Amino acid sequence: MKHFALACLFATLGVLANAQPATQPDAPATAPGTLDAERARIGKERAQLEAGFLAEDVECYKRFAVNSCLGKVNDRRREAMADLRRQELLLNDEERRIRGAEQIRKTEEKASPENQQEAADRRAKAVSDYQSRLEREKQKVEDRAATQSTAQSNSEASAARIKGSQEKSQAKTEKQATAAEEAKKLAERQKEAQERKAQHEADRLKQTKPPAKSLPLPQ
């Protein structure tokens, strides 16, 4: 949301920087009213974001891991407010550029044609530099968004690999436990079979009587 708003600001300032009224070629590129509207928008967005973050702070105090929750909210708060601050700095730069252009225009009214051309060249260079800065800032926002998306994808993939590894380990442990239980049962059955066999042999020996001794011969 905040990246989209910043991109819209870049686009708006870029278009306004290229706008040159036909009747007044030396007029400021951006009307002061537009800057005021942008400042009002930034102030409103900052108030809305802060209200939302304060509500999240309240929810964090209802959780067990309060500090961890607050830390995450503060990270997002700092990032959002930093984006709004960057927008304000761009507006300040544009306002200074407007004041400078106005001063140059007033000076040119009293200057020679040669000086007017030099001043026009300086203005053109200032506009070009400003547009270049807008493009760089826009590229930074896009790169940061792409980096965050890649980091999130990598995190999700890593979590999936860890989960798969844990499931395999758990399945292996369960298989080993089952095999150990089966081996234990087999050993118990073998032991019982040996005990039954020994008991059977003992019973057989008891039932078998030894042969009677022959009587002694008469003397």
Rank of each mutant, 00 (worst) to 15 (best):
P216N: 03
P218L: 08
E45K: 06
C8G: 10
S128G: 09
A47L: 07
N154T: 10
K72G: 14
K62Y: 04
Q116D: 04
Q152C: 02
A22P: 06
A183V: 01
D75L: 13
L215Y: 13
Q219P: 15
E167M: 05
E88R: 09
E50M: 11
A160R: 07
E167N: 08
D83K: 11
A183P: 02
T34F: 03
A65R: 13
F4V: 12
A120V: 04
C60I: 03
K175G: 07
K163V: 02
P113Q: 01
L35T: 04
G100M: 12
Q20A: 04
N67D: 13
T30E: 00
L9M: 12
E79I: 10
A55D: 14
F4D: 14
P216C: 02
E192G: 08
L6R: 07
Q170A: 11
E195T: 05
Q48R: 14
Q199M: 05
E142F: 06
A17G: 09
A27E: 07
V66G: 05
A159Y: 01
K206S: 04
E94A: 13
I42L: 11
R105S: 07
K184A: 07
A212R: 14
P211G: 01
T147H: 11
E201K: 07
A183K: 11
A47M: 06
E88G: 09
K184V: 00
E102D: 10
T178F: 00
T178N: 04
L13H: 02
A202Q: 13
T23V: 04
E94L: 11
A180H: 03
Q152P: 03
Q24V: 04
Q20V: 14
V58D: 13
Q176F: 01
P218I: 05
R99Q: 14
Q131V: 07
R161Y: 02
A179L: 05
F10W: 09
V141E: 07
Q152I: 02
E45N: 09
G52L: 06
Y130S: 13
A151E: 15
P25T: 02
V141H: 03
F4H: 14
R99H: 14
A37M: 06
R76Q: 15
L6M: 11
L186V: 08
P210A: 08
K206L: 07
L134G: 01
Q139L: 08
T150A: 12
E142A: 09
D83N: 11
R204P: 00
R76E: 15
N154H: 11
K2C: 08
E174V: 02
R144K: 09
R78N: 15
E192N: 14
K185Y: 00
K110S: 12
D93P: 04
F10Q: 08
K213F: 08
A183M: 02
Q24C: 00
E79Y: 12
E109M: 09
N92Q: 12
P218S: 08
M1P: 15
R86N: 10
D83F: 08
E79A: 15
S128D: 10
E94M: 13
K206V: 07
R78D: 15
R96K: 14
K184F: 01
V58H: 12
K213Q: 15
D36L: 08
R46C: 06
K172T: 13
L49M: 12
A212N: 13
G100F: 09
S132T: 13
A40S: 13
K184W: 00
K62G: 15
E195F: 01
Q190L: 07
Q24F: 01
A5G: 06
A126M: 03
Q131P: 03
